[in-house]
Design a binder for these strands. Structure first.
Lengths: 201, 201
DNA sequence: GTCTATATCTTGATAGAC
DNA sequence: GTCTATCAAGATATAGAC
């Protein structure tokens, strides 16, 4: 299972295709575009992938691979529920800030993905950390629906990250507001206030 | 300024193009697709719009037109801050639930829109209700950054709406969780708990 | 204002040499 | 495993009749 330091052509293609798909979407990128990025001819791509869709799906799988591990680990580290929540929120914000391609692909898949792809994304990528978050939500806010609380936690981080490019033009904006650390801090300030005193409804 | 009951061909084109662009995106829809939907030949579209991009931009402007008025009004109705917040949250959730095309286009523009388009969207569509929300945020949570609080309020509604298709496949999901009324109720439950007692940090 | 016809370009994909 | 050459389909856009 140990890969050589050298990267295969297949992986090279995927890694260079990912930023293109993230920025322009499936229909916005041609096989020639990808080939140019890898510095080969478009025909050669078909030696590695059956067609454009197969390449795209492989790129998604590659981009989403192992993304959830850090989140699951962040929650798993022992501590008070609020400490564990804080670690999750910080990890989520930092991770998204560090990988804008992932953030973009995630949003694209949410809109363009069919049932099969959404199911795969949910079950293969998010089910594990979300399960841990659900358990934490039950501890921290037993009076509310756990699924809703878990999503709300994600929302307080993700929506700031996702809307950052547009928020620049909304009133009250300043540069600090788009920094992952600040977003995590703000989310935790709200969440701590929400759940600190045992969640009286 | 009073339009006749009859709709112009131009508006007919826009109204039929909007669902297509919402579902498939700019590159996923051809001029032929749109023409077929309006039951005319693709060439005729060029009598009404200079090119595909002009048609798309006009469709966006049409889809986003007057969308913000209800939100601004919802906040403007007199009442306690929490009542006004509740009205905003309910209006936002209901509005998005009633217009899935708008919700989809909004997400697409966030990813695909260039600086100019994002600026236009922010300033022409969202600035007014967001300004009102900012003022409300200052009243309701003076200890926190107003912009962040305002976005967080939107996040607690919007992120549930936007992720609905994928959340179906996440643990703890059940049909109720995607209903606008329930989402609004949950968001308000959290927000009321957050801000009820004067926002002690 | 809509049509048919068509020019021009780009796309995904294949064939076959090396 | 990559190349050149090429096909067939689909795209945007235009010209000109009605």
């Amino acid at each position: 299972m140990v890969t050589q330091g050298l990267i295969s052509t297949r992986e090279d293609i995927l890694e260079r295709a990912i930023p293109l798909f993230a920025r322009l979407g499936f229909h916005g990128v041609s096989m020639r575009d990808i080939a140019a990025e890898v510095e080969m001819q478009a025909a050669a791509l078909y030696h590695h992938f059956a067609d454009k869709e197969a390449l795209y799906l492989a790129a998604m799988a590659y981009a989403f691979k192992d993304k959830s591990v850090v989140l699951t680990q962040a929650i798993a580290i022992p501590g008070t529920p609020l400490e564990r929540l804080n670690r999750f929120v910080e990890t989520l914000a930092e991770g998204m800030g560090r990988d804008p391609d992932f953030l973009a692909l995630l949003q694209r898949e949410r809109i363009d993905g069919n049932e099969t792809r959404l199911k795969l994304l949910a079950e293969e990528v998010f089910a594990e950390p979300f399960d841990a978050l659900l358990t934490l939500a039950k501890e921290i806010a037993p009076a509310h629906d756990s699924h809703m609380v878990a999503i709300s936690i994600c929302a307080l981080v993700m929506y700031h990250m996702e809307t950052a490019p547009m928020r620049r033009f909304l009133p009250g904006w300043h540069t600090t507001l788009d920094q992952p650390k600040f977003i995590a801090k703000h989310a935790m300030a709200l969440l701590a206030q929400l759940f600190a005193d045992g969640d009286q409804k």
